[in-house]
């Protein structure tokens, strides 16, 4: 089974093509050099050509549905829907970017908290319990400030791994606030990769799941209005 994974929710546009448990090819490009809106379809074309495959030889497409940049997500979803519509038999799966990020730590028996940090101090998060061969979501996707997130996590009282690019600057604040042991992975590799999206798509395929391409939409997550107002006040003092 060959699956194409697409993520365009962050400034890195990431594509991956897998076959069962192997990566066939991977493509990442920073939108600073090529805007995602221009590069996405040509990149898919180039990537497929690189491994001598055509769309018709693929068994499905997995696409990121967020949380992340709304415009980015809509580009990815638009392209994925178009590809699946044109290739009638091609199934489509929507994958959360936070699941994809946590997937990097698959097999690690610990609590895992993937974080996606946006420019406006918005933090997208979720908490998973990692098992030998599973990732179970125990706190749902949210968009909040760090305080709100830590308040929820501090109840768990178990060792937890935070993963996300750019989370270094929160490390001290997190450590001071939590009573449990916390590990931090802040690496340039900690973004929702296309291959991870593809692997999660494969799981859905094996479970026999499939989205309706007519209705699949992004996860539109954002901070509550109350939080935005609160934050504004603290910066003005």
């Amino acid at each position: 089974m060959k699956i194409l994974g697409i993520d365009s929710s962050t400034r890195i546009c990431s594509l991956g093509l897998i076959e069962e448990h192997n990566i066939l090819t991977e493509y990442n490009i920073n939108s600073y050099y090529q805007k995602t809106s221009s590069i996405l379809v040509p990149a898919i074309k180039t990537m497929l050509e690189g491994v001598n495959l055509t769309l018709a030889e693929i068994d499905g497409i997995a696409v990121a549905i967020g949380p992340g940049s709304f415009t980015g997500l809509r580009i990815g979803l638009g392209v994925a829907k178009g590809l699946c519509y044109a290739t009638t038999s091609l199934p489509l799966w929507g994958i959360s970017t936070l699941d994809a990020l946590a997937y990097s730590l698959r097999g690690v028996p610990s609590l895992i908290c993937p974080l996606l940090l946006s420019t406006r101090e918005e933090i997208f998060s979720a908490v998973f319990r990692g098992g030998e061969d599973s990732l179970e979501k125990i706190i749902d996707y949210d968009c909040s400030d760090m305080d709100t997130l830590l308040a929820k996590i501090s109840f768990l009282k178990e060792k937890i791994i935070f993963i996300g690019e750019g989370l270094k600057k929160y490390q001290k604040a997190i450590q001071e606030r939590l009573n449990q042991e916390a590990l931090f992975i802040d690496s340039p590799l900690a973004f929702p990769r296309g291959v991870n999206i593809a692997f999660l798509g494969l799981e859905k395929l094996q479970k026999g799941e499939k989205e309706d391409i007519h209705t699949l939409s992004p996860l539109y997550l954002r901070k509550s209005q109350a939080e935005m107002v609160r934050e504004k006040k603290t910066t003005e003092i």
Binding site: S69, F70, T71, T119, R120, R222, Q225, M228
Partner: peptide, 15 residues
Amino acid sequence: SLEEFLDLGYEEYFY
């Protein structure tokens, strides 16, 4: 509403 404004990528302009 503010909500509608948030996704215009306005941070890149304001800052």
